[in-house]
Amino acid sequence: MDQPTEGKVLIDGKEVSSMNDRQLSDFRADEIGFIFQFYNLIPRLTAYENVALTRSIVKHAKDADEMLEAVGLMEHRDKFPSQLSGGEQQRISIARALAKNPKIILGDEPTGALDSETGVIVLKMLQNVCKEQHHTVILVTHNADIAKCADKVIRMKNGKILEITENEHPLPMEEVEW
């Protein structure tokens, strides 16, 4: 979303740092799924419509009902965001990001509004996207235990990388402390 102040940004062999606004917009639409901390759901659309919206963005989008089932919200498919709890809205946001079937998923505290049981379900879903579909999931979290579940951890402070570590034995999702 931002242009680098120096160097190049390469993603899957594409130099995104040299793309113009239209190319960047197309790249984000096709390749990246966003899970926002504050959901960014469209208030006038139902849960189903918020997820199904991905079909108008990408051709290879997953079925909205399948994604709602995956996050445990099929019974809320016809509800509007204002009729859902914060955790339910977060899961709709996750379903929408995954429905795009992106190569890269960027999550900003994707479990922040979830209880521990639902958080584990969501983290397992994201882990399965990595392991089974070979997609990249990048999470921002302040929960050190969630970071222990990752294959690679990049610690940052004030926009600078402090350290990068590989987890040879990631913590099982069920052992995350909330």
Score class of each variant (00 low, 15 high):
Thr5Asp: 14
Thr5Trp: 07
Thr5Glu: 15
Thr5Ser: 15
Glu6Pro: 07
Gly7Arg: 05
Lys8Leu: 13
Val9Leu: 07
Val9Pro: 01
Val9His: 04
Ile11Pro: 00
Ile11Thr: 06
Asp12Thr: 07
Asp12Val: 01
Lys14Pro: 07
Glu15Cys: 12
Glu15Ile: 10
Ser17Gln: 12
Ser18Thr: 15
Met19Ser: 11
Asn20Gly: 11
Asn20Pro: 11
Asn20Gln: 06
Arg22Asp: 15
Arg22Tyr: 14
Ser25Ala: 11
Ile32Asp: 00
Ile32Val: 06
Gly33Ala: 03
Phe34Ala: 09
Gln37Pro: 03
Phe38Ser: 13
Phe38Lys: 14
Tyr39Leu: 05
Asn40Pro: 05
Leu41Ile: 12
Ala47Lys: 08
Glu49Val: 11
Ala52Met: 12
Leu53Lys: 10
Thr54Cys: 03
Thr54Gly: 08
Arg55Gln: 15
Ser56Ile: 09
Ile57Ala: 07
His60Asn: 09
Asp63Thr: 07
Asp65Ile: 12
Glu66Cys: 10
Met67Thr: 07
Leu68Thr: 02
Glu69Ile: 10
Glu69Gly: 05
Glu69Met: 13
Ala70Pro: 09
Val71Trp: 07
Val71Phe: 06
Gly72Gln: 12
Leu73Val: 06
Glu75Phe: 08
Arg77Trp: 04
Arg77Ser: 14
Asp78Gln: 11
Lys79Arg: 14
Lys79Gly: 06
Phe80Leu: 15
Phe80Gln: 11
Pro81Ala: 05
Pro81Glu: 06
Pro81Phe: 08
Pro81His: 10
Ser82His: 15
Leu84Arg: 06
Ser85Leu: 09
Ser85Glu: 01
Gly86His: 05
Glu88Leu: 02
Gln89Ser: 14
Arg91Leu: 04
Arg91Lys: 13
Arg91Cys: 08
Arg91Ser: 09
Ile92Ser: 11
Ile92Pro: 10
Ser93Ile: 02
Ser93Glu: 02
Ile94Ala: 12
Arg96Ile: 08
Arg96Leu: 01
Ala97Glu: 03
Ala99Glu: 05
Ala99Val: 14
Asn101Ser: 12
Pro102Arg: 00
Pro102Asp: 02
Lys103Val: 03
Ile104His: 01
Ile104Thr: 02
Asp108Lys: 03
Glu109Asn: 02
Glu109Gln: 02
Thr111Leu: 05
Gly112Asn: 02
Ala113Asn: 15
Asp115Arg: 09
Asp115Asn: 14
Ser116Ile: 10
Ser116Lys: 14
Glu117Val: 13
Thr118Asn: 15
Gly119Phe: 07
Gly119Ile: 04
Gly119Trp: 02
Val120Ser: 11
Val120Glu: 13
Val120Thr: 14
Ile121Ser: 12
Ile121Trp: 01
Ile121Met: 13
Val122Lys: 00
Val122His: 01
Leu123Gln: 04
Leu123Arg: 04
Leu126Phe: 00
Leu126Pro: 06
Gln127Thr: 11
Asn128Cys: 06
Val129Pro: 01
Glu132Met: 10
Glu132Leu: 14
His135Ser: 10
Val137Asn: 00
Val137Ser: 00
Leu139Met: 11
Val140Gly: 03
Val140Ala: 04
Thr141Ser: 07
Thr141Ala: 08
His142Ala: 04
